[in-house]
């Protein structure tokens, strides 16, 4: 198989534009997912009545349905009951809805991995519950959560590949479009793979570096 460089240079700007869109939606979706996840994890950790039940239901729905279906529902079904979104915010909302539950599980198990006596020794030093959470529990929980967190970020970035289904002009959309239009299948797929690697590899490498750092930080007593 020979790659036609002329075709590649011709396609390059299209892919760049698409990659920016993918990264943009991925970024906002993931940031929102972290916020949702942290909120849900704290509520579950503190066993706040009623709210924790609602969150448990949300987590089950979010984890047991595919992102593609969630996006279809948000984008095509919700407008019928008066909730309309444009494609981009739908993408962000869908990714946040899916990612929120995955982040929540990672943060929650991080929180639960801290032995209760850590909280008790902080209390017996006269730290308030809020300060104990902030200075003692959260820093440890966050470090424990790092591997799961990194895995989730990569997972969510990969999930962005379905956005083309709601006619967002992301990398997949561009690739499919070019395959259908010009039949330059190999070049279109080659650029698709290259651009996903450009997005995902740094995150993956950065993630393993971060994991290694955390493992060597002040832990393992």
């Amino acid at each position: 198989m020979d790659l036609n460089t002329e075709v590649l240079t011709q396609y390059l700007p299209l892919y760049q534009k698409a990659a920016v869109l993918t990264v943009k939606i991925g970024y906002f979706g993931i940031v929102l997912a972290i916020v949702i996840g942290l909120f849900c994890a704290l509520i579950q950790y503190h066993k706040i009545p009623v709210l924790r039940r609602i969150i448990a239901v949300y987590i089950e729905i979010s984890r047991n349905t595919p992102l593609l279906i969630q996006l279809f529902f948000i984008y095509y079904a919700l407008p019928k009951i008066g909730i309309s979104t444009n494609a981009e915010s739908c993408g962000v909302a869908g990714l946040a809805f899916l990612g929120g539950s995955y982040m929540a599980e990672v943060f929650r198990s991080g929180l639960e991995a801290i032995p209760p006596i850590q909280k008790e020794s902080a209390y017996s030093l006269g730290l308030s519950p809020l300060k104990t959470m902030f200075h003692v529990i959260l820093p440890q929980a966050v470090s424990i959560s790092v591997p799961g967190f990194v895995a989730n970020v990569i997972f969510l970035l990969k999930e962005t590949s379905v956005f083309s289904a709601i006619s967002l002009m992301d990398l997949m959309f561009t690739a499919k479009d070019l395959i259908g239009l010009h039949y330059n299948t190999i070049e279109a797929l080659f650029l698709l793979v290259v651009f996903y690697l450009i997005i995902l590899l740094p995150v993956s490498v950065l993630g393993s570096l971060l994991e290694r750092r955390v493992r060597h930080a002040g832990f393992g007593s």
Partner: peptide
């Protein structure tokens, strides 16, 4: 002040 059996220093 209280000191516990398992020390429970903050590892971080």
């Amino acid at each position: 002040g209280m000191v516990f059996q398992s020390y429970d220093l903050f590892p971080h």
